[in-house]
């Protein structure tokens, strides 16, 4: 339960009410909390998954979408390994805001951060953003793309597993032997060099 090989920080961003918290809850606790209130500031969850017989620990920081918390949420981008940018496929404005979010990510997050675009709420009938539009947008901006439903649990597991796998691949490729605070890349927690590096 604690002998994980990798620790990755994943941060979810996107407009208020697109379902960030629900995605996290669905993934970490397997439930869909109806009537979930707006997140205040930042929420934190942890989940350990197994990728190819290796344990990977995901620290998931779920940020508030509301504008007024922008200052605190931005401070969490910096150390993220992966950023999940979420929009609501049934709500055009949440999609229109994506360029703003990207600009913010550019400004505050590490340049090597893994970026994933997620269109949430595919269980709804009143879709406003066709899949293709989302796909094209993701392609243009060099992001992964996935459509999910936290309610129906569609693609949620796949989303996080994909991220874990990708980050692990990255980590293996770069093969950073030790945690480097100036380079918020991947963080293979090496068992023998003490345990402190896992505290990050």
């Amino acid at each position: 339960m604690d002998d994980y090989k990798f620790l990755f920080k994943v941060v979810l961003v996107g407009n208020a009410g697109v379902g960030k918290t629900c995605l996290v809850r669905r993934f970490t606790q397997g439930l869909f909390p109806p009537g979930q209130g707006a997140t205040i500031g930042v929420d934190f969850m942890i989940k350990t998954v197994e990728v190819g017989n290796e344990k990977v620990k995901l620290q998931i920081w779920d940020t508030a979408g509301q504008e007024r918390f922008r200052s605190i949420t931005q401070s969490y981008y910096r150390s993220a390994h992966a950023l999940i940018l979420v929009y609501d496929i049934s709500c055009q404005p949440t999609f229109d805001c994506l360029p703003d979010w990207l600009r913010e990510i550019e400004e505050y997050a590490s340049s090597k951060v893994l970026r994933v675009l997620v269109g949430n709420k595919i269980d709804r009938d009143d879709r406003e953003i066709p899949t293709q539009v989302g796909e094209e947008f993701a392609e243009r901006h060099n992001m992964y793309f996935l459509e999910t439903s936290a309610k129906e649990s569609d693609n949620v597991e796949r989303l996080f597993m994909q991220i874990a796998e990708d980050l692990m691949k990255q980590a293996r490729m770069t093969n950073v032997p030790r945690y480097d605070p100036n380079n918020y890349n991947v963080d293979p927690a090496s068992q023998d060099s003490g345990c402190c590096s896992r505290l990050n």
């Binding site: 209130g37 707006a38 997140t39 205040i40 500031g41 930042v42 929420d43 934190f44 920081w61 508030a64 918390f69 605190i72 969490y76 150390s79």
Partner: peptide, 11 residues
């Protein structure tokens, strides 16, 4: 710091 800050915003 991250966690304690998140706790400060507990909802």
């Amino acid at each position: 710091v991250s966690k304690f800050s998140a706790m400060c915003h507990s909802g």
